[in-house]
Amino acid sequence: MTEPLVQPRTINLAFTGASGAQYGLRLLQCLMAAGCTVNVMVSRAAQVVIATETDLKLPGSPQAMQEALTEYAGARPGQLLVFGREDWFAPPASGSGEKAPLVVCPCSTGTLSALATGASNNLIERAGDVALKERRQLILVPREAPYSEVHLENMLRLTRMGAVIMPASPGFYHSPQSVSDLVDFIVARILDHLGLPQDLMPRWGEERAKGKRGDQG
């Protein structure tokens, strides 16, 4: 018997300076809709990317950013928390904090390098280091092309450490009709890995299985 999906209470979500801000923002909306509490971390480069790729302009201070993202994602009061880049007292900064998964979406190749080498120069890098040392779930969503040998070596090293590398490479077998459909393809895969229910995208073979059940009815 397949075990039911277990919904995590808290998710740590980091935005870094790779292209693909739409993936992280859509994921944030879905996590809010799923009732999760989300600890958000945003790098300086990510702020620039978000402003370039979307209509969302995030203010500099964590409190003001929290208010902006709460409104954007439709979060309940207290459901979304934003932590500063050097807030070493934030829950994701310590192994004694809540055992929450960490998703870095999008994940820059600079962040890949920092995590692969154990750098902890800011809260995002420290949160990744904690996830690795505590053997917590770590999902990294790079968006780069082509990958250099250094990038590939870092991804291999992180995979061997237990991280999941999930490049923002959407499929086309679901016949996407819009850019949003392509974004949802990746977000659905992330939600699946987090054990969260999602109806953004049918799982492989799901429609065929439904059809068979319907024929038997």
Rank of each mutant, 00 (worst) to 15 (best):
Ile139Arg: 02
Met161Ala: 13
Leu156Phe: 01
Leu158Ala: 02
Leu132Val: 11
Leu152Cys: 06
Ala127Phe: 02
Tyr147Leu: 14
Arg126Ser: 01
Glu144Trp: 04
Leu123Arg: 05
Asn121Glu: 13
Leu156Arg: 14
Asn121Gln: 13
Leu158Trp: 07
Asn122Leu: 05
Val130Cys: 08
Val141Lys: 05
Arg136Glu: 01
Ala119Val: 07
Tyr147Phe: 14
Glu125Leu: 01
Val150Phe: 14
Ile124His: 08
Leu158Pro: 03
Ala131Gly: 07
Glu149Gly: 12
Thr117Tyr: 13
Gly162Val: 01
Leu156Asp: 00
Arg126Lys: 12
Arg160Glu: 06
Ala131Asp: 10
Leu158Asn: 04
Leu156Ala: 15
Lys133Ala: 08
Ala119Asp: 07
Val150Glu: 13
Ile124Pro: 02
Met155Glu: 00
Leu140Pro: 00
Asn121Asp: 15
Gly162Arg: 03
Glu153Ala: 15
Gly128Asn: 14
Glu125Trp: 06
Gly162Trp: 01
Thr117Pro: 11
Arg143Tyr: 05
Asn122Ile: 11
Gly118Lys: 14
Arg135Gly: 03
Arg136Phe: 08
Gly128Cys: 10
Lys133Phe: 06
Ser120Thr: 15
Leu158Asp: 07
Leu140Glu: 03
Met161Asp: 09
Arg143Asn: 07
Pro142Trp: 04
Arg160Gln: 04
Arg136Val: 03
Glu125Val: 06
Arg143Pro: 09
Asn122Phe: 04
Val150Tyr: 10
Ile124Glu: 03
Asp129Leu: 11
Glu153Pro: 01
Leu140Ala: 05
Val150Gly: 08
Met161Thr: 02
Glu149Ile: 10
Ser120Ile: 04
Ile139Ser: 01
